[in-house]
Amino acid sequence: MNIFRLLGDLSHLLAIIILLLKIWNSRSCAGISGRSQFLFAIVFTARYLDLFFTFISLYNTVMKIVFLATSYGTLYLMYIKFKATYDSNHDTFRIEFLILPAIALALLINEEFTVIEILWTFSIYLESVAILPQLFMVSKTGEAESITSHYLFALGSYRALYILNWIYRWFLTEKLNAIAIVAGIVQTILYCDFFYLYLTKVLKGKKLQLPA
């Protein structure tokens, strides 16, 4: 555990809390992609099945349970409690185009051909692209509420901090997993365009609106 990793995890947690509070306080999930949230729930489920087999630390276990609970909580709010406000017309990204390649890639490129390792690898690949339905939704409507952009910024910061964490670990000459790093870098790159818009518009008090 290092400072970058800890800040990354906290940023991830902050993103999830921002999203939950936004939905809860406004009683609405307008502008949020249920498909991305569904993919994140799959990611956490596939990756954290190791809760049953391995113990790393109390911190690790607690965070995993929190991430699982909050991701299912978000799905509950979106698809059951506030379903009427869910903007499904704009949430049309075909998620099978993400899930199926992630399964295929996990079966082909993995460190060990065991069920738990392939599930872990699948979750890494899927997480790297799970935000695409959300970004697609923002690009389709051409705008995002400030709170939605804060959510995306916190989520992107988590990925950027994880890269700093790997650089730090690399200098400590710890062994690192190429799969996690390549997928993590891909994931971070997906946020770059959004980061630019966030820094140039949202932080100056303007709404995030894509150039026509």
């Binding site: 990793r5 995890d9 991830h12 190791d50 391995t54 790393i56 630390s57 690790n60 965070m63 995993k64 991430f67 460190e111 872990w120 994880y162 964490n165 710890e174 062994k175 690192l176 997993n177 996690a180 790093i181």
Partner: peptide
Amino acid sequence: KITSTNHDEL
């Protein structure tokens, strides 16, 4: 094995 493959991360 666990610490050698980023499995200690979230």
